[in-house]
């Protein structure tokens, strides 16, 4: 109790200093993978519903998927894959200490993410104008829940990457410290991963 260490006051500043940098990085990696595991099971409930109803109502799924715009879906897939690439390149850049390049790539990522949501918006309005809503039938319930939840994740990812971009501008990250960049990058790739399955399941399979 004598040598009260300064970094352990009740205030928030610098508390994480109780781990050495290497441990902190490993902990963060493990933490984000654990978080992604929870995300798998969050979407898992929807995937389970998808499988069950697909088996039960093949006809509804067949007719439903015809009403989706395959071309826009495919374009969006490519857009999201592109954003994954830019994030990966951004991380590669900061690993070499190139902050400017990181910011450029993050900016591109946000642009692509915005494009993705823009296209989603077009698709949704298109569906609504044809009277297709979440309560239309089981297929559209699934379509809107899956893409909606995924869209929310895209939005959350944009906020996260936006924050990283902002902090990078403040000179927070360097060759030796860039864990938050890596962590948010992993989250972003996961968002991409989910879409990689959603696209064929909803748009392509009849």
């Amino acid at each position: 109790m004598s040598g009260q260490s300064t970094h352990h006051g009740p205030g928030a500043a610098g508390h994480e200093a109780h781990m050495d940098p290497a441990t902190a990085r490993e902990a963060a990696t493990l933490g984000i993978w654990t978080f992604l595991a929870t995300e798998v099971l969050l979407f898992g409930g929807l995937f389970t519903s998808y499988i069950i109803y697909r088996i039960k109502y093949p006809q509804i799924f067949y007719e439903g998927h015809l009403k989706l715009d395959h071309v826009l879906g495919a374009i969006n897939t490519v857009v999201l894959i592109g954003s994954s690439l830019t994030v990966a390149l951004g991380i590669a850049a900061i690993r070499k200490g190139k902050v400017g390049l990181l910011r450029l790539y993050l900016f591109l990522t946000l642009l692509l993410a915005g494009t993705f949501l823009g296209i989603k918006y077009v698709e949704y309005t298109e569906k609504f104008s044809h009277g297709l809503y979440p309560d239309t039938d089981i297929f559209f319930s699934l379509y809107f829940m899956l893409t909606g939840l995924h869209g929310l994740h895209v939005l959350a990812g944009m906020v996260l990457l936006g924050a990283v971009l902002f902090l990078a501008g403040r000179g927070r990250y360097s060759e030796s410290y860039h864990t938050p960049v890596e962590i948010s990058g992993l989250y972003w790739h996961f968002v991409d991963l989910v879409w990689i399955y959603l696209f064929p399941l909803l748009y392509l399979l009849g």
């Binding site: 654990t34 595991a37 929870t38 995300e39 798998v40 099971l41 969050l42 979407f43 898992g44 409930g45 929807l46």
Partner: peptide
Amino acid sequence: VLATPVVGI
């Protein structure tokens, strides 16, 4: 970690 997300959804 593994069960709670399911009740969430």
